[in-house]
Nucleic acid binder design. Structure first.
Length: 109
DNA sequence: TTAGTGACCAACT
DNA sequence: AAGTTGGCCACTA
């Protein structure tokens, strides 16, 4: 449990630093952590985000800007609702203007 | 320790 | 161009 907290904490830290109204991808976070191919592991961290107090996992989408993890959220369109609540346009589980609101930690940070 | 799964990404066909 | 397969890392059983 100790090791998972470290990696998860890094992911949560980055996700928590995502500016409101912006979204990022798993690969971007993985790259920022130094492991570009651990995108799946990043997604796994999001899966554990359920146990975390405040992790804006709705700001984290796949490379296509598609809300792949929306299916894992409690509500049906809760993820989309949250994104729209932050000013992000989401249609059919896709983030509109994804490239415009795309936030890359490795670059911004 | 080995094997299987997963909210992915990239490459090959 | 689109669809399919493999591989990567981390976690659970």
């Amino acid at each position: 449990m100790d090791k998972r907290v470290d990696f998860f904490q890094l992911v949560y830290d980055v996700v928590c630093q995502i500016p409101q109204g912006r979204v990022t991808s798993y690969g971007a976070i993985a790259k920022y952590l130094g492991t570009p191919k651990s995108s799946r592991a990043v997604g796994y961290a999001m899966n554990a985000s359920h146990s975390r107090p405040d992790v804006p996992a709705h700001r984290v989408v796949n490379r296509n800007g598609l809300l792949t993890g929306k299916h894992h959220f409690p509500g049906t369109h809760l993820m989309q609702q949250l994104l729209e609540s932050e000013g992000i346009e989401v249609v059919d589980d896709q983030v509109q203007n994804f490239k415009e609101i795309y936030w890359e930690p490795n670059v911004e940070l």
